[in-house]
Computed example of a mutant assay.
Amino acid sequence: MKSGLVTIKDLARELNISASTVSRALKNHPDISAETKRAVNELAEKMNYQPNAVALSLKQRRSNTIGVIIPEIVHYFFSSVISGIEDVAYDAGFNVIICQSNERFEREVANAKTLLASRVDGVLVSISKETTSYKHLHNFANNNVPMVFYDRIVPDLIADQVIIDDFDASYRATKHLIDSGRERIVHLGGPMSLLIGKQRKEGYLKALAEAGIAVDEDLILESDSFEKARMAIMKLINQKKKFDGVFATNDLTAIGAMQTIQKKGYKIPDEIAVVGFSDGRFSGITDPTLTSVDQHGYEMGTIATQMLLKRITAEVDDYPFETKVLNANLIVRGSSLI
């Protein structure tokens, strides 16, 4: 027998019966005798026969597969989202194809083309830092493929979405630093091309304004990675810029800041307090432990998938699009408590 996946024709050849008989036996058709069904199923199991998913999807007009475009799988928040997605999809009988953009626009476009070519029933999308053009995402709607955004959304593209209140979460994180006596607070932010970057900065600015603290633009830096944070904090210290608090747009950025602060001889939180964002697995094992905003990644993944499956299985497609806003919690730990 030729190498490769076993087909219905292979089973038919081995049993010396027609392919249509094999097909009906596998589907437990009443016109097929019990003896033939038994023989077909035993051989199918012996030869490890698997149905052709592509052929079935063409026939049934559904692949029972959803696609996911994710910026970074290694990021704890996004890995938590994936866990939520897969749990809901698995329970509903759906497979998941995960594509990583690695924060690059070109790869995100390639991901979108791959998922369309794979005939997925729907997609879950969180855009990359570089994404400012959205034609590849409009292509899903043009091909009647439902889409749900999670965390990072496209404001002008109408679709279901699951987000947290980034503005409020950042406001409360910054206010926490102010309430602990900090007045010179560094904001290590994300790119302003992303709505979450803008909203986290705006929440930070609101907290300063409410407390009557003047804004120092030198303390607001686009720095959203471990290495960028180390360089940013080192630059501020070398320039002798005074600061007593740091609010970072994610935990790895906060940890990069913490390491540099400590390396330069400053005590956390006595001299400089630090707050992160995402409450990842590292936040509880830093020294001191890291105060952080819990984004509820797993919950976001489950809700986004439930919304997508509802859209996929709906008998009508004209019901209103939904936006679910999750409340983020500030988890206070040693990096900001004196």
Rank of each mutant, 00 (worst) to 15 (best):
E130S: 05
I163V: 15
V145S: 06
S126Q: 04
D151G: 04
V145Y: 08
D166S: 12
N139E: 15
N142Y: 06
L137C: 09
N144I: 00
D160P: 04
S128A: 14
P155V: 05
M147S: 10
P146C: 05
V162A: 06
F167G: 07
I127R: 04
Y150S: 03
K129Y: 12
A159C: 14
D165W: 03
I158V: 13
D165F: 05
V145I: 13
D151A: 08
K129Q: 14
P146D: 10
H138Q: 13
I127T: 14
S133V: 10
Q161I: 01
N143K: 12
M147P: 07
L157C: 04
S133K: 14
H136W: 08
F149E: 09
P155M: 06
D166F: 01
S128N: 07
D160L: 00
Y134C: 01
I163W: 02
K135I: 03
N144G: 00
I164M: 05
A159F: 03
N143I: 00
H138P: 01
V162I: 07
S133M: 09
D156G: 12
I158A: 12
T132W: 00
S126A: 14
I163G: 02
Y150T: 03
L137Y: 13
S126K: 01
D151F: 02
A141P: 00
F140T: 01
I164R: 03
R152F: 09
K129S: 14
N144Y: 09
L137F: 14
R152M: 08
N142H: 11
V145W: 08
Y134G: 02
I127Y: 11
N143Y: 07
A141D: 08
H136T: 07
M147T: 14
A159N: 07
H138T: 09
S128M: 04
V154K: 04
P146V: 02
D151W: 03
D151N: 15
P155G: 07
I164T: 09
P155R: 03
K129A: 13
E130T: 02
Y150C: 02
D165L: 01
Q161A: 13
S128G: 08
L137S: 10
A159I: 05
S126E: 07
F140C: 01
H138R: 10
V162S: 08
P155T: 07
S126M: 01
A141Q: 13
T132I: 10
A159T: 12
M147Y: 03
I158F: 02
P146Q: 06
T131Y: 11
L137V: 11
S126F: 03
I164H: 05
V162W: 08
F167N: 11
Y134S: 01
V154N: 10
H136P: 09
R152S: 13
S128T: 10
R152L: 07
V162L: 03
L137I: 15
I163T: 14
A141L: 12
K129P: 05
A141R: 07
V162T: 10
S128F: 08
V154P: 11
V154G: 09
N139D: 15
P146T: 05
R152P: 12
I163A: 04
P146F: 06
F167I: 03
L157G: 06
K135S: 13
I158E: 14
V145C: 10
N144D: 14
